[in-house]
């Protein structure tokens, strides 16, 4: 039996339990609840289409950024449904819209987990956003990771220099990133039902402003369930 790929919303709920730092979000199943449910979130917001038919959301116009007010939320809802329809996704295939607080990061990074048959949980750091697979600027570590391991891995990826103030760029909150990596590594050891996890991207804010996973995918092992 194949493993189960959780949706972004399900993945977030899974990760929340382990204290993984994520931007705040609300899942909205219907347009009539949109304003009410998102009242606690702070603008600007991001809207993401949630449908099993749309695995790569951004490819079909399923992600809207910079939503500044309630009006834009409502028109955003209609735009996402229209974009979906243009790609053959019917309204009944749409579970709802994920609305989340937009994070301004100085840079982004991928944090992933993979379960290796020999060594167990392996944590992957990668840079390059959507180019991560092309650039292969990655560092691996076998969990649990200690502070030295995390520093060594961060030194190894070139992309982390962009977060450390390369050529006058704003410095990222490296301490928050280290804490996040450590939390993911600890979670990897504590939970044994996952098979693979992507936190991609993790946005690293300016110093003192944290690091947050803004998208996530958790794959659950079927045989364990």
């Amino acid at each position: 039996m194949p493993d189960i790929v959780l949706s972004e919303v399900e993945s977030r709920r899974y990760l929340e339990k382990s204290g993984i730092s994520m931007n705040r979000f609300v899942f909205v199943p219907g347009r009539d609840e949109l304003i009410e449910l998102t009242r606690t979130l702070r603008f600007p917001l991001v809207m993401k289409l949630i449908s099993p038919k749309a695995v790569h959301k951004s490819d079909i116009g399923g992600v809207l950024l910079d939503i500044a007010n309630e009006n834009e939320l409502l028109t955003g809802w209609d735009t996402l449904f229209a974009n979906a329809a243009a790609h053959g996704i019917r309204p009944e295939d749409i579970e709802g819209i994920n609305v989340q607080e937009q994070i301004r990061g100085v840079g982004e990074i991928l944090i992933g987990l993979k379960r290796d048959a020999t060594f167990g949980p392996v944590l992957v750091l990668g840079s390059g956003g959507i180019l991560v697979e092309l650039l292969k600027d990655v560092a691996l570590g076998i969990c649990p990771l200690n502070d030295n391991d995390i520093d060594r891995m961060l030194r190894k990826i070139k992309g982390s220099r962009l977060l450390e103030g390369y050529r006058g760029k704003t410095k990222g909150d490296m301490d928050a990133l280290r804490v996040l990596i450590k939390t993911v590594s600890d979670m990897a050891m504590d939970m044994d039902d996952w098979q693979e996890i992507d936190l991609n991207p993790v946005l690293v804010g300016p110093e003192g402003q944290g690091a947050f996973a803004v998208d996530a995918r958790v794959v659950i092992r079927r045989e364990n369930g």
């Binding site: 060594f119 697979e133 996890i197 992507d198 794959v219």
Partner: peptide, 17 residues
């Protein structure tokens, strides 16, 4: 694999780590 991570961490990459 169903994730980025799966494709980024080959078996020997893990040995090297």
């Amino acid at each position: 694999t169903s994730s980025h991570t799966g494709g980024l961490a080959g078996a020997y990459d893990i040995w090297q780590a």
